[in-house]
Design a protein around this nucleic acid. Sequence first.
DNA 1: GTCTATAAAAAGATAGAC
DNA 2: GTCTATCTTTTTATAGAC
Lengths: 199, 199
Amino acid sequence: MARTPAPGTRRRILEASAKLFGEQGVRAVGMQQVIDATGVGKSLLYREFASKDELIAAWLRESDAQWWERAEEVTAPHSGDPARQILALMEFFHASVREPDFHGCIYYNTSSEFREPGHPGRQEAKLHLKGLCNWFRDKGVEARAEDPDALADMLMLIVGGTLANGEVLGETGPARMALAATELVLRQYAPNALTTATR
Amino acid sequence: MARTPAPGTRRRILEASAKLFGEQGVRAVGMQQVIDATGVGKSLLYREFASKDELIAAWLRESDAQWWERAEEVTAPHSGDPARQILALMEFFHASVREPDFHGCIYYNTSSEFREPGHPGRQEAKLHLKGLCNWFRDKGVEARAEDPDALADMLMLIVGGTLANGEVLGETGPARMALAATELVLRQYAPNALTTATR
DNA sequence: GTCTATAAAAAGATAGAC
DNA sequence: GTCTATCTTTTTATAGAC
């Protein structure tokens, strides 16, 4: 009880890291900037996170958990209607591109910033994206898709294309087609499920 | 004639930069590494490129020119058949993901590495991607698509999704659907053109 | 426990030697 | 013209003051 740091310390560091890493990119942000933003001492930061790589990994893991919480909120109202849940999640992606401080997907971005095969940034990115792909596949099964894996990969194509193009070209570029593309894919890969979802 | 550097200097610097920036990412590579890889002196490098940003811009511009040369080679054989040209270019993208030293698209990657609005990395990325989008639109017009802009943005979604997912998840992931997705989009947005292309 | 000072290495860029 | 040495800042990380 007495040897652990102040309770809010770790959370504050992660919040500051999320803001800085997300807005400027990971390699663009030094540990000193994280320290300045939190007001925490250098020694304490390195006590919580032994290295920058550990901080990166913790940030991505926490972001993954928080993202799934919001995704649940968006899809829960359409429980039992997998096609509409998929469309709701895709609308959620599209909305993120429209936000003024959108800077791309932290998983695609961070993975591309660290090319070393075993880097935590790559591993967490892979985990997050595979998790999303699995969610799509499960919804595909629920929607009685003939090939749920193909459906899931198609939807991942739309997600990646929406976020990658959104980062460079903004919301008025290819990202604007996210929902239309999703409907097109659903009509092809889960036609029965879609008839109930969109007139 | 006598005050210009050795003729191959600039080209050698650009070739070394292309390899290093492409494989490791731009922020991960220092100017010293470029110097070590070329054998050129530091002063000479800064005579050719006044700053790292200038080197980045020159690298991306040169890569754009070289990319369009190869794209021409791939699409030229199908001149007059825009749907097939689009499919050929998409197959070209898919093939790049399959290459053992694929590290994502240098334009999506570099744009995400430099968030400052006016950064040359962002500007060149925007130019390249808009150029590609325009090429798709022109082919859409040639293919008598009802909405060539929508078709182009749909295809950009597939390109971005293929390259972004390919960087993280490899060729066996969503990238494998690139061609099927293209056919689906063509069938929807340029159905007449496609009948001649795929049985 | 928490912060300040300080490594030690690497970054981008410049000045000067030949 | 070309390379070497240096400058300044910034990076990640550690040791020590309180």
